[in-house]
């Protein structure tokens, strides 16, 4: 039992990210409502962000801002004491990209609604076939 628990705890961050990712991907592919596809897209991107951020974690480490005095005095840095800064930097970029894509997708969606009068995919396809 304890082995199982240890096994789950050791990697459940990845599992959580993967499950979220699959939910998002399913939404993007299978949903008929275009807005739900967009929601799936944000879940999908959030899952990847979670995945990356969990890479940056180190057990027992604090945020990567060095302790420093006002006079600029500075001691040698113990790298193990601070979390990995790189995934945070990368994900700041990915978040920005996600927001941008979301904005553009919503704008296009508004236009689709104006042109077709609906955001249900099957109804849009019917109007195209006519």
């Amino acid at each position: 039992m304890e082995d199982l628990l240890a096994y789950i705890i050791s990697r459940y961050n990845y599992w959580a990210a993967i499950i979220l990712l699959l939910i998002g991907l399913y939404g993007m592919i299978a949903k008929n409502n275009l807005l739900k596809k967009v929601i799936g897209m944000t879940i999908f991107q959030a899952a990847i962000i979670l995945f990356y951020v969990s890479i940056g974690d180190k057990r027992g480490a604090t945020i990567p801002i060095l302790a420093h005095g006002h006079d600029g005095a500075h001691q040698a840095v113990e790298a193990a004491a601070y979390a990995n800064p790189l995934p945070h930097v990368l994900m700041l970029t990915a978040i920005v990209v996600g927001v941008s894509t979301l904005g553009v997708a919503l704008a296009i969606l508004q236009k689709i609604y104006r042109v077709h009068g609906t955001i249900e995919e099957d109804e849009i396809l019917e109007t195209i076939d006519q």
């Binding site: 705890i9 940056g56 180190k58 057990r59 480490a61 060095l66 840095v77 790298a79 990995n84």
Partner: peptide, 25 residues
């Protein structure tokens, strides 16, 4: 693939050693 990845919060994982240490130090 997740089976193959380092433990969550493993301080010795490659990601937390190679570039990260340089930046921190």
């Amino acid at each position: 693939a997740a089976e193959d990845l380092p433990f969550w919060g493993d301080p010795q994982s490659p990601a937390s050693v190679h570039l990260s240490d340089y930046y921190l130090e």
